[in-house]
Design a protein around this nucleic acid. Structure first.
Lengths: 149, 149
DNA sequence: GATTGCGCCGTATAATTTACGGCCCTCCTG
DNA sequence: CAGGAGGGCCGTAAATTATACGGCGCAATC
């Protein structure tokens, strides 16, 4: 985990399709050495995966929304978590400090999609209260992983 | 952009290191056909990039924080955006609806890191007010792209 | 001062990607 | 309805890339 490893992680974060030769040229190592380092980083779990970053606007997911959620008093925490994992619209879901219990990040095709999502949450009996904020424009974008319809 | 393309995007979102042969077996196509589709998806910008997803805990970025920001009245919007792009701690930055102007998502090494980040924002004269929420645990994780120290 | 371990290099082999010609099916058109 | 054009897929051949491995050099250890 030295400076070179960090540089490799950064380079592969920008573009993981580069060949070992290219990466090697960038960090001053042979392809073999880079291969060994990358293999080690993957084996150690430092590199979790190599993923395709998809343009959300191009697959009918232009709307990004953040939803604060206060869980219903009688809702099962585990059940809620499982439900979150099974919804492909969800990009991220974190338990957070503050007035709300969870922060959800969803990508949907339209504002109606947001509405439908909220309706589903509500009808599932998970939430007591929620508050939604829409992303208007993006300054720094996290990668978008398409998890399914 | 048919069902097969979507399935390819989903598969590559889970693991983009699969060979064209593996992907082809999964969708019922030959490696050549998959290659052509993937090439098209990249050319069209639907696939923005192939990136390494890094485990934040393993590179000293265990703390995930969401920061709501109200921009200072005299702050330059463009300047703020440029500053955000240049900070490697920032995972995402969106202009949002609601009481706050921006939502920042940062990854840092510790709570002091959060404090230092806020101090930097404040001393830069960008923000009028802010509110920080910490992620306690993660249910659905977005990929983490290492952007540098 | 010898030895052990680790990381890197270079080469050989295997796997994968890329390029390309041909085929089939569909859709359009006369 | 026949002819033709276009698009997508397949299979093969070539090029590129990844993997495996033996050896070398440096540094730390004893």
């Amino acid at each position: 985990m030295d400076r070179t490893d960090h540089e490799l992680l950064r380079l592969m974060g920008a573009d993981a399709r580069q060949s070992l030769a290219q990466l090697g040229a960038a960090v001053g190592l042979s392809p073999s050495a880079v291969n060994e380092r990358v293999r080690r980083l993957q084996a150690a779990g430092t590199i979790r995966a190599i993923r395709a970053d998809v343009a959300p606007e191009q697959i009918s997911r232009p709307v990004l929304a953040f939803i604060w959620v206060a869980l219903a008093p009688d809702a099962s925490e585990d059940g809620f978590r499982r439900a979150m994992r099974d919804m492909p619209a969800i990009c991220a879901c974190h338990h957070v400090t503050g007035a709300w219990s969870y922060l959800l990040q969803i990508r949907v095709e339209s504002l109606s999609g947001v509405e439908a999502f909220l309706a589903r949450l509500k009808s599932g009996g998970w939430i007591a209260r929620s508050e939604t904020m829409l992303a208007l424009s993006t300054v720094v974008d996290a990668p978008f992983i398409y998890r399914g319809a």
